[in-house]
């Protein structure tokens, strides 16, 4: 686990360190979408909740919605930003 953490830290640094500033905004937005992986935690919470445990069910449901918002919204916004760069380049 610790190995994964440390490797990921270095990977993150390595991957990001050479980015043209033009792409900072989309990149931030893309990274934003990626940390939407919390959704998986929300799904696990939801799936393990007892059908009678209403508090967990409601909270879990809320978490799933919020997580999905993060993931889907994040990727769609990023795509919209990048779409513009793309079409302009072809001209």
């Amino acid at each position: 686990m610790i190995t994964i953490v440390i490797l990921s830290i270095f990977l993150g640094i390595e991957v990001i360190s050479r980015v043209p500033s033009v792409l900072h905004t989309p990149l931030m937005s893309g990274a934003n979408a990626i940390h939407g992986v919390v959704i998986i935690g929300a799904i696990i919470v939801m799936g393990q909740a007892e059908p009678t445990d209403y508090l967990s069910l409601i909270l879990g449901f809320l978490a799933v919605i919020l997580g999905t918002l993060n993931v889907v919204g994040g990727f769609v916004v990023t795509d919209r930003m990048l779409e513009m760069f793309k079409s302009k380049k072809k001209k």
Partner: peptide
């Protein structure tokens, strides 16, 4: 990995 990646990449950014 996703979380840490964003954590470190976000910090660098």
């Amino acid at each position: 990995t996703g979380g840490i990646l964003v954590g470190s990449a976000g910090t660098i950014l």
